[in-house]
Computed example of a mutant assay.
Amino acid sequence: MTKIVNYISEAFEELKTNVTWPEWAEVQKFTIVVAVFSIVFALATWGVDEACAKVIAGFFKWLKP
C-alpha cells in the first residue's frame, strides 16, 4: 500500500513541477478546433451512412420486383 501512495504522491509532484501547462487562450483555441473538427467529422460520417443506406435500399428494391 505504501508503494501506491508513494507513486500517487510522486505523480502529483511531477505534474506540479515538470509539466508545462498551456495558457488559457491556447486551451480555448484548441477546444474550439476540436469541437469544430468533431462536428465536421460527425456530419461526414452521417452523410456516408445515409448514402450507403440509400445504395443498399436501392439494391434490394432492384432485387425484389
Rank of each mutant, 00 (worst) to 15 (best):
W21D: 01
N18V: 14
F12Y: 08
I32E: 14
N6Q: 15
P65S: 06
V48Y: 13
T45V: 06
I39V: 14
I4D: 03
E13F: 13
L43W: 13
L43S: 13
A57E: 05
K64D: 04
L15D: 08
W46D: 08
V34I: 15
W46S: 08
K64W: 07
F41R: 11
E10P: 00
A35G: 02
E10R: 15
A53Q: 12
T31G: 13
A44V: 10
T31Y: 03
F37G: 02
W24D: 07
A51P: 04
V33E: 12
V27Y: 05
V40M: 10
E23T: 15
A53F: 11
F37C: 04
E23S: 14
A25C: 03
F60M: 02
T2G: 05
A44W: 07
F12T: 02
V40I: 15
T31H: 06
I4C: 01
V27F: 06
P65C: 00
W24Q: 07
W24F: 04
K54S: 10
Y7F: 05
I56E: 06
E14G: 09
W24K: 10
I56G: 00
Y7H: 02
K64T: 09
K54N: 10
F37A: 14
A11I: 07
M1A: 11
G47D: 05
W62Q: 02
F30Y: 11
T31C: 00
V5N: 06
V48I: 13
I32R: 15
I8K: 01
Y7L: 01
F12R: 05
A51L: 12
A57K: 05
V36G: 00
K3T: 08
W62C: 00
I56R: 08
V48T: 10
S38L: 12
I39D: 00
V34K: 15
N18Q: 15
I4G: 00
M1H: 07
F12A: 02
A42V: 05
T20L: 01
T31W: 01
W21Y: 13
F59W: 13
E23K: 15
E13Y: 12
P65H: 05
L15R: 11
K61T: 03
G47L: 04
I4A: 06
V5H: 06
F59D: 04
N6P: 01
F41K: 10
G47M: 05
E10N: 14
G47S: 09
I32G: 00
V48H: 03
